[in-house]
């Protein structure tokens, strides 16, 4: 394997780790010392060189290992990737968007050659070479959405737009924060967000939906979400909850720095041209507490965020049980100094 990509696991012996470079570019999600829901969407325009925003779809050192993990999840449970029949066109839109972006942004790793509808795709990190006919699913080993998202980090959902609503009707979901595609597929925007506490009363979803219905092709947007995960497990699915749930009970003051991870989702939204659907990539970034506290500002701020978060939210995010342990650990890095505004390290 190329030196560009880590050899690591997200299960079993959990050898996942971030390099110093990966810590430096980690998308820390808190612009201030407290957290509450907000629509907080901004244009998904290219960011600083080296940042996770540099390209439309970020490919990082975990790419190859994450794709191997996805293949394992799908082998165990193929229902993690589903497409309702009318969503295949949106799948082709997504395949085109990703292939063109990656070939443009990472020419050293990806190539796309087109001769009319005869396409030739080369993915060097995963050692894939595929000649196929665009819009003819019989020329690919999987449907278009599954094919390309087996080669792209992050979860993906495809939303059909009709009747002034967005309907989640296709998806590849193997690195999720505890929600089930199999259960939620077919739901409207507010139906699939129904279990989220507090936000409905704040009209968060009314405003977000209104905004997204007007999302335009060529003008993607992004926002952050976050939660906490014990061990570097990408697949925190409700399906497997009995398997990973007990890990929360074995945390100790000695192991928390190593085992507790902040889990950040970089969520982007893009209008797709042929289908008028919206694709929602949910890219998961993990960082160990002991990696995170190497940045003093992030350590101070995370301590304050966790300390002040309402229990209802800590419960929903699944870390109420270990909140005291987290605070004990993080407190030692919070000297009470003020933090500067914004996401970046000082």
């Amino acid at each position: 394997m190329s030196l560009d990509f880590n050899v690591e696991t997200f299960r079993g012996d959990y050898t996942f780790k971030n390099s110093a470079k990966a810590i430096k570019r980690f998308p820390f999600p808190f612009p201030e010392d407290s957290y509450m829901y907000s629509v907080n969407m901004e244009p998904h325009v290219p960011g600083a060189v080296g940042s996770v925003f540099e390209h439309l779809f970020d490919v990082d050192e975990h790419y190859v290992a994450e794709m191997r993990d996805r293949a394992q999840v799908l082998a165990e449970d193929p229902l993690r990737c589903q497409t309702l029949p009318h969503m295949e066109l949106a799948g082709w839109d997504l395949l085109e968007l990703i292939m063109e972006s990656k070939a443009r942004d990472y020419p050293q790793w990806f190539e796309l050659h087109k001769d009319g509808d005869n396409w030739h795709w080369i993915n060097k990190p995963l050692q894939i070479e595929q000649k196929f006919t665009f819009m003819d699913a019989s020329t690919l080993p999987y449907g278009p959405m599954e094919y390309i998202t087996r080669q792209t980090q992050g979860d993906f959902t495809l939303q059909d737009q009709r009747d002034d609503d967005l309907w989640i009707e296709a998806g590849m979901v193997t690195t999720q924060a505890d929600w089930s595609l199999d259960f939620d597929i077919g739901m409207s925007f507010k139906q699939w967000h129904a279990p989220v506490p507090l936000a409905h009363q704040m009209n968060i979803f009314d405003r977000a939906l209104k905004f997204l219905l007007k999302l335009q092709h060529g003008a993607p947007v992004r926002r952050f979400n976050w939660t906490m995960t014990v061990d570097a497990l990408l697949d925190t699915s409700p399906e497997n909850y009995p398997k990973w749930g007990p890990s929360k009970t074995t945390m100790t003051p000695e192991t928390i720095g190593h085992r507790q991870h902040l889990r950040v989702e970089l969520q982007t939204l893009h209008r797709l041209p042929r289908s008028n659907a919206i694709v929602f990539p949910i890219r998961c970034y993990l960082i160990r507490f002991e990696e995170l506290v190497t940045v003093p500002k992030w350590a101070r701020r995370l301590h304050r965020v966790v300390r002040d978060i309402p229990d209802e939210l800590a419960t929903y995010k699944g870390f109420l049980r270990n909140k005291p342990l987290m605070l004990d650990y993080l407190a030692q890095f919070d000297d009470g100094q003020p933090t500067s505004p914004g996401f970046g390290a000082d």
């Binding site: 077919g186 739901m187 139906q191 007990p246």
Partner: peptide, 22 residues
């Protein structure tokens, strides 16, 4: 038993209650 309901499956969602503490 959650109140979360899927029209496609015509069903509510059931989640293991003792996953964290078998």
């Amino acid at each position: 038993v959650r109140d979360h309901f899927s029209r496609r499956l015509a069903a509510f969602q059931g989640v293991n209650i003792d996953a964290e503490d078998p």
